[in-house]
Design a protein around this nucleic acid. Structure first.
Lengths: 234, 234
DNA sequence: TGTATTTTTCTTGTCGACAAATAAAATGCA
DNA sequence: TGCATTTTATTTGTCGACAAGAAAAATACA
């Protein structure tokens, strides 16, 4: 319980510690290695990373700023809970950002954006044929994040990135249960989206982005209600 | 130049220092007391607030997380610049958030939200008749922030708040020039928006929110181009 | 035994000092 | 004078230690 990692690195450069701790904790939170509610102890982290509490603290402040952890004053810090009761607000925001970023990509993308997007599209297709669920999640996120970048609106990409993070956490929670859940259909939809972006078909991209997002949300909701039903059945 | 404030408070409680510094710096940045590009010196702030660098630093990390300041590693920290070249991305995001939050308010508000919204509406009307420009900016922000809260989607309200902050900074920059710029018309539109929300007219609220936002953006853009033209003329 | 009160423990919040990195200033040299 | 090099100055990054606050444990008392 004390050493969760086999001593990452004993030596590092000035200024790199914060980012390292931030990135690693963020990954562990989003991958549910640190499940919601887990205590986050500064001293323990300081020992684990072989540094003083100061840079640890700075990383925690940043994580708290993004809502990934919560601090009870003078008492403790823990990984934020997933607000299952208000998941609909999450889905609303997610669908809108899918739409808007896809739309803006059709409007604002440059030629050099397309190879990147196509690359992730192919990675996703490969993950689907390999039935590698975790790779599907990761490449799907990368695909849509790349589209958002091509849309070139930092306000939207910022929110979208946070939403995708939270989605990653939620999907991890159920990733055992969805075999076949991200099917070939999504690969085809991705291809359509790319075509609309490339053709600068703004309304088409908007429509496809929305429909695609709603499909994904529907899948997750079904997954969700199925699991709840299982819980109740026991 | 050294003491910008007449010694705020020499005594304070454990844990309150960070929030105090954060709030004060945030206000000074948004009110352009600290204009874009201003250096933000940790030691100077520590002296000014009579505390050590540690809580100052934490406040700065949070401000950096919201993009209000920028840190050059190992060198200096300064107030973020306003990205005039990409203002359209700001306007796009602002209009969409106006729309969405108004729409969601019509859908999700509770009875107890309306008095608050009406209160800010009246404050704004009073500021208009008094021709108090700064009060107009402040109450307009409060009015729309209250509507967003009534929409009850923390993802949208979070982004909206940041956009309104940035707008506050931009408007401050030109606040000398716009007399009569927020006219009676906006008061009437606010009243229409309230009516649509109360009637739970979702599509109507959406439409009004969008139109209202576009009007505001238009005003700001006109203000902007007029000032640019002045600069060029000189 | 049950409850109020004191003590202890544990975690965070703050501090002052030092180290590292960068830019600016000073110096050397042709 | 012009340029490369060394030195200094300034600012941030990190550290270890201590203090404060809150919960948990221990104690006192009816």
């Amino acid at each position: 319980m004390a050493d969760t990692e086999p001593t990452p690195v004993p030596e590092r450069k000035r200024g790199s510690g914060v980012k390292m701790v931030y990135d690693l904790l963020r990954d562990e939170i989003l991958d549910l290695v640190l499940p919601p509610g887990s205590p986050v102890d500064e001293v323990q982290l300081a020992e684990r990373f072989k540094m003083s509490r100061t840079p640890i603290r700075e990383a925690l402040v940043r994580l708290a700023g993004e809502g990934l952890i919560e601090t009870l004053p003078n008492r403790s810090t823990m990984v934020s809970n997933i607000d299952f009761l208000n998941l609909h607000t999450f889905f609303d925001a997610l669908v809108l950002m899918y739409r808007v970023t896809t739309r803006l990509a059709a409007q604002n993308h440059r030629q050099e954006d397309l190879p990147t997007i196509r690359g992730f599209h192919e990675d996703y297709a490969a993950a689907v044929t390999a039935r590698d669920t975790l790779a599907m999640i990761a490449t799907n996120v990368a695909f849509h994040a790349a589209i958002a970048e091509a849309g070139r609106n930092p306000y939207f990409t910022g929110l979208f990135r946070r939403l995708l993070d939270e989605g990653r956490r939620i999907l991890r929670l159920y990733y055992q249960s969805y075999e076949e859940q991200f099917p070939q259909r999504f690969v085809d939809e991705h291809a359509e989206i790319i075509a609309a972006i490339e053709a600068r078909d703004i309304e088409g991209a908007d429509r496809l982005g929305k429909a695609h997002a709603e499909q994904i949300v529907l899948q997750v909701q079904q997954l969700f209600s199925r699991n709840v039903r299982l819980d109740i059945a026991l």
